[in-house]
């Protein structure tokens, strides 16, 4: 099976893209809307979903980066200007970086304040313990929250630009990734 077809992304690239989109959406919604749930077991479960989905993203982003390096993106027709290509590359690198950094910061946020990080019933080994992490807990959490906001904006821009390419520029940018 070829990884990347001439006119579109291959099945694995599409699967990684759309499954991660769903995981990120669940993770962001869980943390953004947690306050709508009453304090207690239900809210605890909603917050836990944020962690679980984030850790799934962390695993998949490793696979995705490896896959992307070995399988270049199919070309866009009509082709982009140099400026547009540079902007697209920068935005994609930023998205990949955030998908990698945010879950790690999430783990550090939990561990720096002495909480275990549970991944579907398995407690992850501690990178940071409470004694050494507590003085940095607020800064780590602030950075996690801030970069989370950056990710939300980048995703919104990513979606709008994909629609712009499809509806206005009428190139194959979006259709390459459609199932």
């Amino acid at each position: 099976m070829t990884a990347t077809r001439t006119m579109g992304y291959g099945m694995i690239a599409k699967l990684l893209h759309w499954s991660m989109a769903v995981l990120i959406l669940i993770s962001l919604c869980a943390i953004e809307f947690k306050d709508f749930f009453p304090k207690g077991a239900l809210r605890h479960a909603v917050v836990a979903w944020h962690f679980q989905m984030g850790l799934c993203v962390l695993i998949l982003i490793g696979v995705r980066i490896t896959w992307r390096i070995k399988n270049p993106a199919p070309p866009i027709f009509p082709s982009l200007s140099k400026m547009q290509s540079l902007a697209a590359t920068t935005a994609h690198v930023a998205l990949y970086a955030l998908m990698l950094i945010l879950p790690i910061l999430g783990v550090l946020t939990r561990q720096s304040r002495g909480n275990d990080v549970d991944f579907f019933g398995h407690v992850l080994p501690a990178i940071l313990d409470e004694d050494s992490g507590l003085p940095y807990a607020l800064k780590i959490k602030s950075l996690h929250t801030y970069l989370g906001d950056v990710l939300m904006w980048l995703i919104a821009v990513h979606m709008l630009i994909a629609i712009f390419h499809h509806m206005v520029r009428r190139d194959n940018t979006l259709s390459r990734m459609l199932p």
Binding site: T89, V93, I101, S142, L143, T145
Partner: peptide, 27 residues
Amino acid sequence: MNIKNIAMIGLLIAAAMASLNAQAYSG
């Protein structure tokens, strides 16, 4: 991933860290 991309990631992190005020908080 080439050096250029890695440099971009580094710049992104540096920019994020630089723009993050120590007192930044939700709300």
